[in-house]
């Protein structure tokens, strides 16, 4: 038990964070490099004003036409993404580990609130799964990898929820939880989860092209 814990929370955690950080830097650098090599003219109409305008309208719920057309999806996706990012960073038991390893600490979410947000993430994943199966237009563009990615995202939250409540098999699930978190970190730069990095670039590009070339809004 101690050996496994030390392995998953030591060397494996290092590997996960290095691949995550290195992968993210590589991905963004490769993106900019590819655009520079193949479609350099894009830089000629990139504009800060149109970029920020687009990012702003898509990051605020109901500020884009598309988000108003799909109100349920809009609410679910915002609740999902906010909880997904805040819970792992501001969970007390995670901060305790940062404090022990690096002597750094910051304020934590109350455990009760983090528990509710975790349930919201899990329910959102169920919603996204059902949506892929039920809606024909979504089903049409769904491949096996979409289900794998959904499972990768849901796993740390399901195992974390189970472990927090200390149900039977607690230690085993804790190890699974750490592994699930590491898999998700690694998957961010190397799967379609990379939209975490690319979404601002996508919006900046779309905003600039619509604003500067077509003289239209992209929201």
């Amino acid at each position: 038990m101690h050996t496994i814990y030390q392995f998953v929370s030591g060397p494996l955690a290092w590997i996960a964070f290095i691949l995550f950080a290195g992968g993210c830097i590589y991905r963004v650098a490769a993106l900019l490099h590819t655009v520079y090599q193949k479609e350099r003219f894009i830089f000629s109409y990139m504009s800060w004003r149109h970029s920020l305008n687009s990012i702003f309208h898509w990051i605020i719920p109901f500020a884009s036409v598309n988000s108003r057309k799909h109100p349920v999806m809009t609410v679910v996706t915002f609740v999902f993404h906010i909880s997904l990012i805040l819970v792992p960073i501001f969970l007390l038991s995670h901060i305790v580990l940062w404090d022990e390893a690096w002597n750094i600490t910051w304020p934590a979410l109350p455990d009760g609130l983090a528990d509710v947000m975790t349930v919201l993430v899990i329910l959102s994943c169920v919603f996204f799964l059902a949506r892929r199966i039920v809606l024909p237009e979504v089903k049409y563009v769904t491949s096996a990898s979409d289900y794998v990615i959904l499972a990768i995202v849901a796993a740390p939250f399901i195992t974390g929820f189970y472990a927090y409540h200390q149900w039977p098999g607690y230690s085993f699930v804790m190890i699974l939880h750490i592994l699930a978190g590491e898999i998700m970190l690694i998957a961010i730069p190397f799967s379609r989860l990379r939209h975490m990095l690319f979404s601002v670039f996508t919006r900046a590009y779309m905003g600039s092209e619509f604003g500067g070339v077509r003289h239209a809004r992209d929201w």
């Binding site: 038990m1 814990y5 472990a163 607690y170 804790m174």
Partner: peptide, 18 residues
């Protein structure tokens, strides 16, 4: 100490039992 000795609880819920 538990990690050094490879004995005793090391996970949150092994000490902070609900």
């Amino acid at each position: 100490c538990h990690l050094e000795q490879k004995a005793g609880p090391v996970l949150c819920g092994e000490c902070h039992r609900k």
